[in-house]
Design a binder for these strands. Structure first.
Lengths: 216, 216
DNA sequence: CATGGGCGATTGTGATCACACGGCCGGATC
DNA sequence: GATCCGGCCGTGTGATCACAATCGCCCATG
């Protein structure tokens, strides 16, 4: 079998398909921290050869989504508390800026979409579905930040989310949160009121709230 | 010749050697914006096969240091003014935080090293050596931020520098700056005085100064 | 029962090849 | 003379293989 075109070939490169799939799994907290990934294992499960698997893993580890051990073994990161604090600070810095830029452009349709996403998020919380909770939570933030029209800043923010993915999983499955996110309501209220200081505060507390009290 | 070990084998993987070399060239502004790179060309000039070259390019494009065209061609980025503004804002946000964290740890030996680097920087300015200017400029900032003991934040900051590399080159070769950076002196003065607000202001102006007035 | 040595299986790395897509240049046609 | 078409060359993509390093397990030894 030499270079057989895949039946499911969508015209998108195989390494890109792997990359997107893994990236989403990591960002949404579907993988636990410290989980090892192998080239051959990944290649087999996606029905490709080692080459595209290697590229996808290399790309993800360049973004900090995966860590390479000294021997080249790759696994999901198991972050120290110091690093978690740094990433939380980065989230606060970048996302307050993104929210501020989005504020003047936030019209009623956007706020309604945010409320709808927030309902799905609350539902995931009561169901104790950590993955769905993380996914809807990030979707809430991304939907808001897309209005900022700042792709470079959003890309950096998503890189930070990516690094925090496995950590958020272990965090949210551990504390088994059942309360819906009250900070999201504060964000929506500030958007409605056009209150920039309140918005910045709401973003900062929402972003750091879950991550700050890890130093157990 | 199958898998012949290279005579210059230092134990470091070939793709990593390429990565580091290209990364430094891009960050230091040795490559102009829009410069195209080819797998075979790179592999030939480094004496390796296409495989490690591909990995290095993939890694760099994941960090935003290179852009992939639709057909997979890779070249150094030619940034829009909007994107430059975003990256300048990111620099200001992240680097003020890093400087603030470094401030309480900045003792006299660090300040003396910063002054020495700054002299080399001024020398590059009078010589109109854009590459040396960018290199010493970044070394100045990195030396300060290393004291912040925040590797994750520094890594993100360096990613932003990487994206701005070719742009800084074309900027600094165009305006042919001859004056030494006065903002660096403000940074050093604020460090000596332990004045945090002054330090934050100095960092912000230093970082945005060159990039802000691009909107010609 | 704990511990260290050794061997086999597994893994990442790099080279090489086949293939398909795309750009570029030349010539033929109107 | 301008324009369009076709083939060639260069380029990225993915598969496969050889090889070295390393991990893990088992057994022997104290």
């Amino acid at each position: 079998m030499l270079n057989t075109p895949r039946a499911t070939d969508t015209g998108i490169a195989a390494h890109d398909r792997l990359y997107r799939s893994l990236r989403q799994q990591i960002m949404h907290g579907e993988l636990a921290p410290g989980q090892a990934l192998t080239l051959r294992g990944l290649a087999r499960s996606y029905g490709v050869s080692m080459t595209p698997a290697r590229e996808a893993l290399r790309r993800l580890s360049a973004e900090g989504a995966l860590t390479l051990s000294a021997s080249g073994r790759v696994s999901t990161p198991d972050l120290s508390t110091e690093r978690i604090e740094e990433l939380a600070t980065l989230r606060a810095l970048i996302e307050t800026e993104l929210a501020t830029r989005a504020l003047p452009r936030a019209h009623i349709a956007l706020i309604e979409r945010l409320q709808a996403i927030n309902m799905a998020n609350a539902e995931a919380a009561v169901k104790r579905d950590a993955v769905a909770y993380i996914r809807t939570n990030l979707e809430f933030h991304r939907t808001l930040y897309l209005r900022a029209q700042a792709p470079a800043m959003l890309a950096v923010a998503e890189t930070v989310w990516l690094q925090l993915g496995p950590t958020m999983r272990s965090l949210y499955t551990r504390i088994a949160r059942s309360e819906p996110p009250q900070h999201h309501r504060m964000i929506i209220a500030a958007l409605k009121a056009g209150d920039e200081p309140a918005l910045r505060l709401a973003i900062r507390t929402d972003v750091t709230q879950g991550l700050r009290h890890i130093a157990t």
